[in-house]
């Protein structure tokens, strides 16, 4: 199995992650069930430079608590969690 996000995701429109600014990335985890929003978020954040910003889109309410908690547990910062229609945007900064 190949990780959807593993192949050339940096700065590309490949898979679920794309660059949306300088050191700023968007991960679209909508449509994925537990544990994948958390797994994808933590896997991608591992690849980023310190101080990078990542926005994560999720569409199940449990991920709103679960993803930020896992991000904080690993020492990263959760800047914002906000609902946008039928999904949520979680903004994190890598430590």
């Amino acid at each position: 199995m190949t990780w959807v996000i593993a192949v050339g995701f940096m700065g590309t429109e490949n898979g679920m992650v794309r660059r949306i600014g300088d050191n700023k990335y968007l991960l679209d985890a909508r449509g994925y069930a537990c544990p994948y929003p958390q797994v994808f978020t933590l896997k991608v954040i591992k690849e980023l430079k310190s101080g990078s910003i990542m926005e994560v889109l999720v569409d199940n309410p449990a991920s709103c608590d679960n993803v930020p908690a896992a991000v904080r547990k690993l020492g990263h910062e959760v800047l914002e969690v906000r609902q946008e229609g039928g999904y949520w945007r979680i903004v994190v900064r890598k430590r």
Binding site: C34, P35, Q38, V39, L42, K43, A70, K73, L74
Partner: peptide, 11 residues
């Protein structure tokens, strides 16, 4: 599978 993957993703 879920516990294993979730736990490993957190180190």
């Amino acid at each position: 599978g879920t516990i294993t993957l979730g736990a490993v993703s957190m180190g």
